[in-house]
Simulated assay, not measured.
Amino acid sequence: MRQIVLDTETTGLNPRSGDRIIEVGCVEIINRRLTGNNFHTYINPERDSEEGALAVHGLTTEFLSDKPKFAEIADELRDYVKDAEIIIHNAPFDLGFLDAELERLGLPRFAQHVRFVTDTLVQAKEMHPGKRNSLDSLCERYGISNAHRALHGALLDAELLAEVYLAMTRGQNSLTIDLAVANDGAAESAAQIAIPVGEMIVLQATEEEVAEHEAVLDKLDKEVKGSCVWRTASTN
């Protein structure tokens, strides 16, 4: 499966009031592995960034003045994301800006170019209700270093989100063991060992273990006065 983790930086918070995209960063994941085939570009928004946004990303009008306009990178971006699952943190924000840019060019909305969009903020709220679920908070929760994130950057944030997403979803493709330790009398999750299913070693039961298993099933048969569900399932 091809997945693209995407992030944008913008001149402000509202595309309807004329704010524009100034940076796009994408990280490719195939079969849960980072490929290094990333997409990154700065964009000349043809306007200044709002003061609050500039404090977040630090991308000045002077720096962006010689960068390509969105129209110049639109086809390359659409080709890159085509038919992939797109992973975004707080997807409505980025999609609102991408749709506004595409609309200016007379092109279909962003979702029509991709397979579907997954919002990791929605996922995080379902997994960690009542907790802070910003990208920084998730990095801390999953032990992912973001010490180098002095300012927001689309590619940097996409790289961090890719690691967060893989950590959030590792139980979907692996068997895990949660280790609990006591901390001041309270049990807390200390670590999680994830083993990809394809790398697991399968050990055959010994004759003694098979005999013990059959003895347990015989006891269950006696208690239910018939065949227990384990024998029924094993014959189907």
Score class of each variant (00 low, 15 high):
97 F>Y: 00
89 H>P: 10
131 K>E: 15
176 T>L: 14
29 I>W: 01
118 T>Q: 08
188 E>M: 10
182 A>V: 12
61 T>R: 13
222 K>M: 11
178 D>N: 15
60 T>Q: 07
93 F>N: 04
135 L>H: 09
168 M>S: 09
188 E>L: 09
148 H>S: 14
9 E>W: 00
185 G>Y: 06
174 S>R: 07
88 I>K: 02
87 I>Y: 04
146 N>P: 07
14 N>C: 07
60 T>Y: 04
25 G>W: 06
145 S>K: 05
77 L>K: 02
181 V>T: 14
103 E>M: 11
74 A>K: 03
109 R>G: 10
18 G>K: 07
23 E>P: 02
88 I>C: 03
17 S>P: 01
145 S>Y: 00
138 L>H: 12
113 H>V: 05
128 H>V: 01
87 I>D: 01
134 S>Y: 08
83 D>L: 04
169 T>K: 11
46 E>Y: 09
143 G>S: 07
91 A>F: 06
207 E>R: 12
59 L>N: 01
41 T>F: 02
143 G>Q: 10
140 E>A: 11
14 N>R: 12
104 R>A: 06
92 P>H: 07
138 L>G: 10
198 G>Q: 13
104 R>T: 03
151 L>R: 13
175 L>I: 12
95 L>W: 04
22 I>W: 00
187 A>G: 06
30 I>R: 12
25 G>P: 02
59 L>Y: 05
84 A>G: 06
115 R>Y: 10
219 K>F: 12
193 I>S: 03
156 L>R: 08
124 A>Q: 01
181 V>F: 15
94 D>H: 08
216 V>S: 09
158 A>N: 14
9 E>Q: 04
69 K>V: 08
78 R>A: 10
96 G>A: 01
30 I>H: 05
173 N>E: 14
48 D>N: 13
213 H>N: 14
74 A>D: 03
85 E>V: 11
149 R>E: 06
49 S>C: 12
236 N>F: 14
8 T>W: 01
191 A>G: 06
210 V>I: 15
43 I>L: 04
171 G>T: 10
179 L>G: 04
141 R>L: 10
79 D>P: 00
26 C>Q: 03
157 D>R: 01
49 S>F: 06
